[in-house]
């Protein structure tokens, strides 16, 4: 109950932001931040809760983005349906990659490298295949109607992505309260011990991969509807893979709010760097790198972990005093 309440409060506060903030620049920043938070939450399900560190979540993001774009542009499919199809196909790609890697018993850095390779293969294919528009990319026609899942006001886009983030938060919270989630965490902590206790580790990891891919694919679908353009670098480039893993690790991998917090901090720092140093290419990546080093060195459990540690240090003495009374 407490977990659900926390989610409700956070989402309610975030939902109120466009009522106060009118600036399009700020709203744009927040939409992109929530987009990254959503992609990161996808990664968090598999990486944070399941301990399988994927370096190729762009594979799912890109699948969602391309499917949404291609179905509309080439096959005239309704945008909402295309959005749903993007999520389903993203999950399917996750299922295929998961089946191949987990059944082969790939763990740790081997899994990371192979997942990166899958995303790179998809990027190269997308950059030459005619159906994706090859090097030119795919442009979705501007059509500002609700039926086309496009909105005049950025605030509406903001609420749409916030709703998706809210669903992803609920999924993560649910994970902490169910058998599937308990088993997934057990696999992260010690795969052999989990197997001995009746956990089919391959199946559990595969399930997590599919959920994870679906969430990150949803971020890709939204990207297409928001920016109305997708090319191979945006969709399957390593940049998205890195952002998807960076935000939960910085915020707190394996926690419900880690990706959201991480995305806020990372995006704010990226924007801050732009203000200070101008729009130098690659600057945000340098900032991400520095933050990542700092977090791993001083807060291995991410910002949420850091907050918990501080909270405990402050709270413990008072508890002891209470016990003495």
């Amino acid at each position: 109950m407490r977990g659900l309440l926390q989610i409700a409060v956070v989402v309610a506060v975030l939902a109120a932001v466009p009522l106060v903030v009118q600036s399009n620049t700020t709203l744009n920043f927040l939409v992109v931040t929530l987009l990254i938070a959503l992609a990161g939450q996808g990664w968090n399900i598999l990486g944070g809760y399941g301990g399988q560190y994927s370096f190729g979540h762009a594979a799912f993001f890109g699948t969602g983005a391309y499917v949404t774009a291609i179905l509309q542009v080439r096959y005239g499919v309704n945008a909402w349906l295309a959005f749903g199809a993007g999520i389903v196909l993203g999950a399917a790609v996750g299922g295929v990659i998961g089946a191949l890697t987990f059944r082969a018993g790939l763990r740790g850095s081997y899994f990371a490298l192979v997942s990166l390779a899958f995303a790179e293969v998809l990027r190269i294919v997308a950059s030459v295949a005619p159906i994706t528009g090859a090097g030119v990319g795919t442009l979705v026609k501007l059509d500002l109607r609700v039926e086309a899942l496009q909105f005049q006001s950025r605030a509406v886009f903001y609420w749409v992505i916030l709703a998706l983030v809210a669903v992803s938060l609920l999924v993560a919270q649910r994970l902490e309260r169910t058998r599937f989630g308990t088993w997934l965490i057990a696999v992260r902590e010690n795969e052999d011990a989990a197997k001995a206790l009746g956990v089919n580790a391959t199946q559990v990891k595969l399930g997590a991969m599919v959920i994870s891919a679906a969430i990150t694919a949803a971020a890709g679908c939204f990207y297409t509807q928001y920016f109305l353009f997708v090319d191979s670098g945006i969709a399957f480039g390593t940049r998205m893979s890195i952002e998807a893993l960076l935000t939960p690790i910085i915020g707190g991998a394996g926690t419900v709010f880690g990706p959201l917090l991480g995305a806020l901090v990372v995006q704010a720092l990226g924007e801050g760097a732009k203000l200070v140093a101008g729009d130098a290419p690659g600057l945000s990546l340098i900032v991400y790198g520095c933050v990542l080093v700092l977090v791993i060195a001083f807060a291995p459990r991410g910002l949420i972990g850091l907050v918990e540690t501080i909270y405990r240090r402050v709270a413990r003495p008072t508890k002891r005093e209470a016990a003495h009374d």
Partner: peptide, 18 residues
């Protein structure tokens, strides 16, 4: 081979879920 990051109860819970 304890699940080091979990509490004792959560450790046993993994088995109990079977």
């Amino acid at each position: 081979q304890p699940f080091a990051g979990l509490s004792v109860r959560e450790n046993i819970l993994v088995g109990a879920h079977l």
